[in-house]
């Protein structure tokens, strides 16, 4: 007497939902002129990645990315609407035109660039090792050991790097950075290989642990741009020009220092050519 019909209905509903997702009829990104005409630009930021974006004490979205987005909106002369996005849905949000571009750990990879277009870099992403002090977890060789468990955040760029460069370490994939930090503090994992840009901010609640952060600049630096829908050239070209101006007048660097308690580990080389 399993309710087969209800199940079938459920299955059909799921299939219909999937179909709706797969054939987004009215889903199309807005070119620059549509953004200007509407008087509003909609930007996706990820408030689970402080201080890139966060909810401040007034429960408003704040942080480095919202301030950069605000500077962009001012240059464009339109109203800024911020949309909180998480890792899994950020790309569909841009592709379907529900936001005009997305920020938030959008480090460029050739694989990702098949799906989404990037502007010129906004900031660099620097990698390093986060570990508890005095255990010798200060080099990738030391981590490349079956005794070592790395706590990482699911869906982040570091993971393919780890699979390539630290293949012997075990990996514990968690949902967010606070959980990752907690896992290391509690001894579930010994270290993490990930971005270290915001680590000072993130470790504030774990003062009882003596942390050790080792940068690994020789490993390579990645760059995060703004994520724009594929082939939305008009918007992307304008954003490139705007970012050039925000870099050269020092806006981006000063906002970075304000939110990340120090300069970028690697400066973004600014080029007049896109």
């Amino acid at each position: 007497m399993t309710d087969r019909r209800a199940l079938m209905t459920g299955g059909a509903a799921a299939a219909a939902a999937a179909a709706a997702l797969l054939t987004p009829k009215d889903a199309s990104a807005r070119p620059l002129e549509d953004v200007l005409r509407s008087g509003e630009i909609r930007v996706g930021v990820n408030p689970t990645l402080p201080p890139r974006a966060l909810f401040n004490e007034r429960n408003e979205i704040d942080g480095f990315e919202p301030e950069v987005a605000a500077a962009i909106a001012r240059k464009l002369g339109v109203r800024l609407t911020l949309q909180a996005v998480g890792s899994p849905e950020r790309i569909p949000m841009v592709v379907s035109g529900r936001i005009d571009f997305v920020m938030g750990a959008m480090s460029r990879t050739s694989e990702r660039a098949k799906v989404i277009d990037y502007t010129v870099p906004v900031h660099s992403e620097n990698y390093g090792i986060l570990a508890v002090q005095g255990r010798g977890h200060t080099s990738l060789q030391a981590l490349n050991n079956t005794d070592v468990t790395l706590a990482q955040v699911r869906g982040t760029t570091a993971i393919p790097y780890i699979q390539r460069a630290i293949p012997n370490a075990r990996v514990l994939l968690l949902d967010n950075y606070p959980d990752r930090n907690r896992a290391i503090a509690q001894g579930r994992a010994q270290a993490s290989f990930d971005g270290i840009d915001s680590v000072r901010f993130a470790l504030r609640p774990f003062r009882q642990v003596q942390w050790e952060v080792t940068a690994t600049p020789d490993f390579g630096v990645t760059y995060s741009g703004l994520g724009v829908a594929k082939n939305n050239h008009s918007l992307r070209n304008w954003l490139n020009v705007a970012l050039y101006e925000l870099h050269t007048d020092g806006t981006i660097e000063s906002l970075w220092e304000k939110w990340f308690d120090g300069p970028m580990f690697t400066k973004v080389p600014v080029s007049p050519f896109f």
Binding site: A14, P88, E111
Partner: peptide, 26 residues
């Protein structure tokens, strides 16, 4: 999620996963 972050093919990944869940539950 892992495959999604690797490929950014959210719709493809999650549509396949939806089908797997439907087949699994049926």
């Amino acid at each position: 999620y892992n495959v999604n972050s690797l490929t950014f093919r959210s719709m493809e990944v999650f549509s396949i996963v939806a089908v797997i869940y439907v087949v699994l539950t049926l």
